Simulated assay, not measured.
Amino acid sequence: MEIGIVAAKAPVPPTSMDRVLKVNRKTPAAQWNRRMLKTLSLALEKDPEADLLSVLPDVYSKTLAGLREGKSKLPKKTYQPDFLQQDTRSLLQESDTATILSPLSDEVTKLLTNDDNLSRAIIELLGQGEVLFQCPHGFSTIVLRVSEAIAVKVVRDVDNTTEYTSMQYLRDQKSSIPVPRPHGLVKMNKFYLIFMTFISGLDLEEAWSQLEDHQKRDISGQLDVIFSDLRSLPFPKNQPLGGVQGEGCKDARRSIRISSEPIMTLKDFEDFIFSNSNSGSTVYLKFLRRFYSPDQPVPDCVFTHGDIRPANIKATQNEDGSWKVLGIVDWEYSGFYPAYWESLKVTNNLSAIEGSDWYLYLPKCVSPLQYPTRWLLDRVWDQHVA
């Protein structure tokens, strides 16, 4: 019987399909993508309508390219505490670049872990912070107390740096105003991190309904002194209106509008204010503006808070039952504006069904009674603003 010899078959080169099926899922680039996919999944669980592009770190594509080409190492896993739904901190990643825009104070530096990765150290610090305020609209402003003396406010980059530059300006030009002192400004991903002193006390909003008439009048008097002092700051020559570092003018109604060009005159400012109609005709607009009589004196430009309300006022009760204003917070709409502007914005939240009598005790210097025509005109105009 003949025994046949079977020739060994030559190895068949792998096809493209084989390569797809046998792809290496353990490469650094693959691990990076799986980590990003998990991050996106967590964001969607918290908010099904989340902007996924804002969730990915700024360096995602650059890191992926480096890993695929073997030019970089896989970043260490991000320190990511468990956060409540729509907590802004969940969008900050260790791989985000942390850019210091204004130097961190020694007090803040001491709070950060001894880590060569600033982003990781900041995320760890924020993860341990006490939430003082969280914007109800999700993945937006959050305020944290990170030590006995330091707080940090995390805001979207579209809100710009007005609050921080105003705190710097008041520290240098009017230290008598009880405003948080700046302790450093950092940009991470699409957010600004504003480090500042923590002001203790109650939000006046929490205490107001329990106060007696004489206590309310006393607080109103204290606020009148504070804001009169604020408004005494001289307006620098040749400086645009709005934020002190040229951040522009803001008009916060249903949404926040920021002027795209420097506003140098009162007319330019009023053109900006009357430029966002969603229903008023050109004729109606011209009719309203005729109430600004040309023979009226041109108002001065004064330093303006832009959002005076009980929630932004910190106060404490003394042993004798009296109340003392400790500080004014939330300066994101501040800057130099026409003198009447504060009187218009102080009633931003006033509605026809208002139940709080706060509006009956407004500080005299910013009361709408100081500029009744402009206040009434703004209320009429407000109905036509988008």
Results as ranks from 00 to 15, higher is better:
Y192P: 00
Y192W: 09
A207K: 13
L204Q: 00
R181L: 15
R181H: 10
D203L: 03
V179L: 07
E205H: 06
L204E: 02
L185R: 05
P182W: 15
P180V: 12
G201P: 03
P182R: 06
V186A: 02
L185A: 12
D203E: 06
S200K: 11
P180Y: 15
T197A: 01
M188Y: 14
H183Q: 13
K190D: 08
E206V: 11
F191L: 00
Y192A: 09
V179D: 02
I194E: 02
K190T: 06
L202M: 05
A207L: 07
L204Y: 09
V179F: 12
A207Y: 09
L193V: 08
E206A: 12
I194C: 10
P182C: 12
L193G: 01
T197C: 03
Y192I: 13
L204S: 01
L204K: 02
I199S: 03
I194Y: 00
M188F: 15
L202S: 11
P182V: 12
E205F: 02
K187E: 08
L204G: 00
H183N: 12
V179P: 00
G201L: 08
F198K: 01
F191D: 04
V179I: 14
R181V: 12
E206D: 14
P180E: 08
S200W: 10
H183R: 09
A207P: 01
W208K: 02
E206Y: 13
A207T: 11
R181D: 08
F191K: 01
H183A: 08
M196D: 01
A207W: 08
T197Y: 01
P182L: 14
V179R: 04
M188I: 12
M188D: 02
R181F: 08
K190G: 11
E205T: 11
I199C: 03
M196V: 03
I194G: 01
P180N: 06
H183L: 15
W208H: 04
L204C: 11
L204I: 05
D203N: 12
S200I: 08
K187L: 15
W208N: 03
D203H: 10
L193Y: 15
V186S: 03
V186M: 07
S209R: 07
D203Q: 07
H183D: 08
V186Y: 15
P182Y: 15
L204P: 00
F195Q: 02
G184Y: 14
E206R: 05
N189G: 09
S209E: 14
L185D: 05
A207R: 11
V186K: 05
M196F: 08
R181N: 01
E205V: 10
G201K: 07
L185P: 07
G184M: 09
G184W: 15
A207H: 05
F195L: 07
